[in-house]
């Protein structure tokens, strides 16, 4: 029983990480129609930059915030490279692939190949449902919820947020209304970067990351985003949690090595089901 609770808590935390990633995918895709392959890199940068700042003596708390801002800035740069100028969708996609590789190279260069971590929320382990849980887990879950909630409010309730939705649903009309669609695209990339950065900052104390952590994260984050058809953040959140928990359960009850394969197989099944649904919808249109 306690093992199950353990897996669930780990799974839910991983799930929120994936949800942050997935939301990043969704925000970027909605506005720019680009799938950002480099989404996982923001997690890596968020974690590594925090590590370096802490190492340089910047206080706990400040480092994390700075790291998130830095990730947002990196996102902005990635966005500029990806969508500014005349780029076809294919070219943009491949560009984000290139950016992901570049991120790995830079990460390897600056931080080396050894997994890095830093201490997160200090304090005694909490006693929950029969097991001891590090407070960092709760921070991860709590902070993720807050961040996602704030983001949702911004997108749904603020003028700029609605402007982004407008760009997402009808870029032509948005342009006619005077909205700078490219600028909105850059903003979405910055948001994606920030979301990834938050994820990195929160997860690294629990699970050390390396320069190539981005690939697995990107794939699973994408899988979660797919649950939301790449456009629905709520479903993406659900997808993230589902993938996070199932991964942990597979790792716990079956085998560590299989967890990725199972998750990926799940994703493919999901894609298949979704395409079936879409075809049905298209028949009605």
């Amino acid at each position: 029983m306690s093992a199950l609770v353990q897996y669930l808590i780990t799974g839910i935390s991983q799930g929120f990480l994936l949800a942050l990633l997935a939301t990043g995918f969704v925000v970027i895709y909605r506005v720019t129609k680009v799938v950002n392959f480099a989404q996982g890199a923001f997690v890596v940068f968020g974690g590594f930059i925090t590590y370096s700042l802490l190492g340089a003596g910047v206080p706990q708390g400040v480092s994390e915030v700075l790291a998130v801002l830095a990730s947002a800035a990196i996102g902005l740069v990635f966005g500029a490279v990806t969508i500014l100028g005349k780029m076809t969708p294919t070219a943009s996609l491949i560009t984000t692939i290139g950016l992901a590789i570049l991120s790995e190279a830079v990460a390897m260069l600056v931080w080396g190949t050894v997994p890095l971590t830093f201490s997160g929320l200090s304090g005694h382990d909490l006693h929950i449902a029969g097991i001891f849980v590090q407070p960092q887990y709760l921070l991860l879950i709590g902070a993720s919820i807050v961040v996602l909630l704030v983001l949702w409010l911004v997108l749904e309730r603020t003028y700029v947020g609605k402007g982004m939705t407008a760009c997402a649903s009808n870029p032509y009309a948005a342009r006619l209304s005077g909205i700078n669609v490219k600028a909105m695209g850059l903003l979405s990339f910055a948001i994606g970067g920030a979301l990834g950065g938050v994820g990195g900052v929160l997860i690294t104390p629990l699970f050390p990351i390396t320069y190539d952590s981005d690939v697995n994260l990107a794939i699973l984050g994408f899988a979660a985003a797919i649950v939301g058809w790449l456009t629905n953040p709520g479903l993406a959140l659900a997808g993230g949690l589902a993938f996070g928990v199932s991964e942990e359960l597979v790792a716990g009850y079956w085998s560590d090595a299989n967890q990725t394969a199972v998750a990926l197989a799940l994703m493919i099944v999901l894609l298949l089901w979704q395409s079936h649904r879409r075809q049905q919808v298209e028949k009605l249109v």
Binding site: V35, I219, A257, M267, I268, L271
Partner: peptide
């Protein structure tokens, strides 16, 4: 399976394929 979807899904799907392939090899 994968081609019914748009380009980006294929990219991730084939990447997933590669990872699954490597995983199977090792296992």
């Amino acid at each position: 399976v994968l081609l019914r979807l748009e380009g980006h899904a294929l990219a991730f799907g084939t990447l997933a394929l590669q990872l699954i392939f490597l995983s199977v090899l090792n296992q």
